[in-house]
Design a protein around this nucleic acid. Structure first.
Lengths: 191, 191
DNA sequence: AGAAAATGCAACAGTCATGATGCAATTAGA
DNA sequence: TCTAATTGCATCATGACTGTTGCATTTTCT
């Protein structure tokens, strides 16, 4: 969260914060204009409790975005983007990211302020993504003339699209496989 | 709009309605929670005027969604989806849709109620899209084993992604070309 | 057990958006 | 030109959300 942890929260307080963030994700995903009251109810917490931890509604939103962005960055790291073979890394990262993204749709769809923690993390993720794509390009998996920034955006779009219909019924690895396959070969006829 | 046009609006009234819808698109795209007052101001109209034409805020939103959906359907039709050669149709439709979508980002990104006019139009568009893809498949442009529903969703995602960075600076035809190319061949190396 | 922290609850003031109404002035259209 | 529709403006009532505070109660941690 945004606070520079002055002193560690008590155990129950930390639980409350987590509950609020998770509830906020659930409620706001369904209705972005939902009230603090609804969020509090979903978290099993009094509305005043939320205001004690988060000064504003906006502060809560930002904390939510930061929390989700950190989890996303973690998901990328867990795929070992710069040590594993490109194709392996892409598969693992994709599967990991799919899971995190499906759990934090709202928070990760938020427009990140230019100096927010979420924006910084997102840019770091972008860099890692481009790096993996570059390694894939070196391995002849991606065309030499390809615009890697466009490829990255297409990759993101494919991930986003994979989350729509299939809530969480399908196997993340199967979805990841289809994403990578589509990214590299498209829908055209196979050799 | 939702009303079954009992009697034609007067010329100035119709102009007002259009101004309100266009202003709503502009304002709500920037802030989905914007007030009627802001919309009215952007439309150069008094707030009460909006309330006279649209009972609720929701009614305005629905009218906006319907209006945009109709324009989108028109954009597809203009590409002659079932008479032109598949590749030509896809290019034309893509270029047309890009223009409409960039002008009505908010309205077309709205969750369409199950029995809304927008939903009906969208489903019709989906059918036409699948039909074109099927013709492309018959012409060996798309793999025989491809899941056309997935292809359609990827196609939509590529269009959506093309709208992000490039506000409206780039040539729609160039963007369309890249979309179709990516859809059919992906990012992999060329033969 | 005892101090400190955290919570629930109730209440309050302030702000803002909504939707409605009446009236005077303007404008389209026959 | 004459009628009817349209609009702007001012105003009002209503309701919802926000953020804060005080106090009693419960929970954590030492």
């Amino acid at each position: 969260m945004g606070e520079t942890a002055a002193r560690p929260l008590r155990a129950d307080a930390e639980r409350s914060v987590r509950a609020v963030l998770e509830a906020a994700e659930r409620v706001l995903a369904e209705d972005p204009g939902a009230s603090m009251e609804q969020i509090a109810a979903a978290a099993g917490v009094a509305r005043t409790t939320i205001h004690r931890r988060f000064a504003n509604r906006q502060a809560l939103i930002e904390a939510l975005a930061s929390s989700a962005a950190r989890q996303l960055a973690q998901a990328v790291d867990d795929g070992r983007p710069d040590t594993a073979p490109p194709l392996v890394a892409m598969h693992r990262i994709t599967a990991n990211v799919l899971q995190v993204k499906s759990a934090w749709t709202f928070a990760l769809g938020l427009p990140a302020g230019p100096d927010s923690e979420a924006a910084v993390l997102q840019q770091d993720i972008n860099r890692r993504c481009i790096a993996v794509l570059k390694r894939a390009q070196a391995d002849k998996l991606i065309d030499q003339a390809a615009d890697l920034d466009w490829v990255r955006r297409v990759y993101y779009a494919l991930i986003g699209e994979s989350l729509h219909g299939n809530a969480d019924g399908a196997d993340p690895d199967a979805l990841a496989a289809r994403i990578i396959d589509t990214l590299l070969h498209g829908a055209g006829p196979r050799a």
